[in-house]
């Protein structure tokens, strides 16, 4: 018996990254922009998605994947809007992984232009898993507090866009929008920031436009590549 030292230097989540890259490549070729929504539970991901769905559907065909630990509730809410939605129930796992999304790809209708993935409500674990998205959005609702970006740095550092939700509550809360925005920009100077209220309809049109423009950019970028 002999000892052997094996230098590996492999990413532990490399297999997830590989699957995510395949998903991105496949959906980009099909003209589908993929958006991954991350936030803590109760920050308003599903309600925001309902407003986005109402804005984009049916002019811009979209599909939705809902991640939750249990229940079909969120997918049901989206289906009621007439949009295809799939529920992934992780049965306890705190995040979605690329292979879970990959399994659903054959079911996505050919005319789809946007795929929204609502991750399991959690501001920690989902940040480590690429799902093949083009845009990662992190949501922060006013009741959660303006100190969250630096407490959960990875989620904010790895996002492309920060969406403040429930902004209609800001007048009633000690929530400093500018402070929270600046903290997030410290972590990630390239963040695009949107201020929304799903209840009052604030910021929804701007956000929808951002997704539409991002898809146009993605397609133009492909043509040049």
């Amino acid at each position: 018996m002999s000892k052997k030292e094996l230098i590996v230097r492999e990413e532990i989540l490399g297999s997830n990254k590989k699957v995510a890259a395949e998903i991105r490549e496949k959906l980009e070729a099909a003209g589908v922009l993929v958006v991954n929504l991350l936030s803590s539970p109760g920050s308003g991901k599903t309600t925001l998605l309902e407003r986005i769905v109402e804005t984009l559907h049916p002019t811009h065909p979209l599909a939705v994947i809902e991640g939750d630990i249990e229940t079909e509730r969120d997918a049901d809410r989206i289906r009621r809007k007439g949009v295809p939605a799939w529920q992934i129930t992780t049965g306890g796992a705190c995040h979605l992984e690329a292979k879970m999304v990959g399994k659903l790809l054959p079911e996505i209708p050919a005319e789809t232009k946007f795929l929204f993935i609502e991750n399991v409500g959690n501001l920690v674990c989902p940040a480590g898993y690429d799902l093949g998205e083009n845009i990662r959005c992190v949501l922060l609702s006013a009741p959660e507090g303006d100190d969250k970006p630096k407490k959960y740095p990875k989620a904010f550092a790895s996002a492309d866009c920060l969406i403040f939700t429930k902004s209609d509550l800001i007048p009633y809360l000690p929530f400093d929008l500018e402070k929270a925005g600046n903290e997030a920009l410290d972590l990630n100077p390239r963040l695009r920031i949107f201020v929304t209220s799903a209840l009052k309809g604030r910021g929804i049109a701007e956000l929808a436009r951002y997704f539409i423009e991002s898809r146009v950019n993605m397609i133009q970028h492909q043509r040049h590549a």
């Binding site: 002999s2 230098i7 590996v8």
Partner: peptide, 12 residues
Amino acid sequence: MELLLDKIDLEV
């Protein structure tokens, strides 16, 4: 940002 498997010690 890394999460790497750097090295393994084996008995062969």
